[in-house]
Simulated assay, not measured.
Amino acid sequence: MKKIYFLCTGNSCRSQMAEGLAKKILPKDWEIRSAGVEVHGLNPRAVKSMAEIGIDISENQSKIIDDNYLQQCDLVVTLCGDARDRCPITPSSVKKLHWPLPDPAQATGTESEIMEQFRSVRNQIESKITELKNFE
């Protein structure tokens, strides 16, 4: 079973969306988790943007990185520079990818404009996860 970990600063938006999308897109024999270097709680707009495409992450919890799981992963994906820079050391057997995506939680403007940022980031994550299907 392959293990993948999506990491972000607060495990509230991008990493949560990545976890939800990966569970839908990647093979069922993958163990998929997300976490943060801090705990910020689940962002309701992330929940809403995922619900729009039929993925329910409303019961997810914001979690801190589990070092034991991290050390056993096949792949670690950081979704922000902070997580990449603060991620604990992993064995050389762990492949690391960095997807420097904008933080939709920092978006400003009308509610509609902010939600467009969440959708844009969600769609970018979906595209990148689809490319992972053939990860070896």
Rank of each mutant, 00 (worst) to 15 (best):
129 I>W: 02
109 G>I: 08
102 P>E: 06
110 T>C: 05
113 E>V: 10
116 E>Q: 13
131 E>L: 13
115 M>W: 06
81 G>M: 07
99 W>Y: 01
128 K>E: 05
74 D>N: 14
74 D>A: 07
129 I>F: 01
98 H>W: 00
76 V>R: 13
131 E>H: 15
108 T>L: 15
95 K>P: 02
81 G>D: 03
113 E>H: 04
92 S>M: 10
103 D>L: 11
74 D>C: 09
118 F>M: 06
117 Q>W: 00
108 T>P: 00
83 A>M: 05
122 R>Y: 08
128 K>G: 03
80 C>W: 06
99 W>V: 00
99 W>N: 01
107 A>I: 04
94 V>I: 13
86 R>F: 04
79 L>N: 06
120 S>G: 14
129 I>H: 00
100 P>S: 00
107 A>E: 04
93 S>T: 11
119 R>C: 00
122 R>G: 05
88 P>E: 14
95 K>G: 06
92 S>E: 11
79 L>V: 03
104 P>N: 09
129 I>P: 02
110 T>S: 04
100 P>D: 03
102 P>W: 07
101 L>W: 03
96 K>W: 00
85 D>N: 10
126 E>H: 02
97 L>V: 12
111 E>D: 09
118 F>K: 12
102 P>R: 06
115 M>R: 10
128 K>R: 10
106 Q>G: 04
77 V>S: 05
